[in-house]
Design a protein around this nucleic acid. Structure first.
Lengths: 186, 186
DNA sequence: TGTTCTGTACAGTTTTTTCTGTACAAACTT
DNA sequence: AAGTTTGTACAGAAAAAACTGTACAGAACA
């Protein structure tokens, strides 16, 4: 794992690796919550324990995967702000390390995902409401279609109300209100 | 859409369908947030607008897909509590309708997903902590491995702290505390 | 400027997921 | 009890996603 192995025995190395591997395995798997691949999750776990920022080549060696895959994996993690690029003089390779502020990672991720969905949904719902209202204003609308349209409108309004709520939840996450409800430790 | 089309003109039908289709398309796509397929998302959208509970055959006809797919799709949505099975005398087919309480759906889904991850992560982290402590107690541990183990332990403790927080967030969602921070409308 | 090295684009392969048609068990009807 | 009908299991086809190796542009160095 990029450590100078002369400084410790083989058994010690093995023991540490065994512990890390199990944690990486589980944490990596559960990162599917963030919509990332199992292998990208493992990559994250690897970086989590890395004693120093890693290069693509090092990751590839540890993961036994191609550098191309490391490149795309790291990019995914960068996009999610789960990994940061690190500058280090001397090395001309790019170096990466995990973002250790998991609270931030969590908040960032879901705020971004949900916001995107909320915005596009609200847009289409409002547009639909307008069109329904326009149709309802037509004097020659059959009684039957008026009933249908009214029902649809109610459903859409309810959905809109929900998305406004979710939007406020996202706000609460982004500006730290959530931490008032559920405080961080220490 | 299961409506008696004698009661309204073809243009009216088309107009309603056009509006619904656009909403279904967008809402369905954004349901990938819930880890469900685009087509299952569409199925959900279809049920959302349905004027009455639908059968698998009706869904298949509307979606232009096989009944098998409808069966699996509905089961997915049932598992996520996004759709309910409805009993109606006279029909011997199973009937389904969407769960209109989106707040509940949202809360349910993420509480379940996150809880599963939190539990398995906490378990593996605590087990790792124990092992690290055991190794650290060994008198013949090299200075170097002690340093590594201590670093790992710190990282794991930090992660553990984060998961405890997330666990409390989930609690807050499940027992409705979240609605105190961000109230529902009306 | 020429040389070396690093990250990624891209095409092709492998793996995974989704979807369909058939077959059948269980439930309902007569 | 015999005859329908309904939902799903299962195997195979189709589609999508993940992964790899090669090739190359651009940066770093000499």
């Amino acid at each position: 794992m990029g450590l100078d192995q002369n400084q410790w025995s083989e058994e010690e190395h093995q023991a540490v690796q065994r512990i890390r591997k199990r944690v990486i395995e589980v944490v990596g798997r559960n990162m599917e919550l963030y919509g990332i691949t199992l292998s990208t999750g493992h990559l994250y776990g690897l970086l989590f324990f890395a004693d120093k920022p890693m290069t693509l080549d090092e990751m590839g060696r540890e993961m036994q995967m191609s550098k191309t895959s490391m490149s795309t994996g790291v990019r995914t993690l960068l996009d999610l702000n789960m990994v940061n690029k690190v500058w280090e003089k001397g090395s001309r390779k790019d170096l990466y390390e995990v973002e250790y502020d998991w609270y931030q990672t969590f908040t960032d991720y879901f705020a971004t995902q949900w916001r995107r969905a909320v915005e596009s949904n609200l847009q289409v719902l409002r547009r639909a409401l307008k069109e329904i209202d326009r149709l309802l204003e037509q004097p020659d609308a059959s009684e039957f279609v008026v009933e249908i349209l009214t029902k649809d409108r109610d459903k859409i309004r309810q959905a809109e109300s929900y998305y406004r709520w979710l939007d406020r939840v996202i706000d609460a996450m982004e500006d730290g209100e959530l931490y008032k409800l559920v405080p961080r430790e220490s």
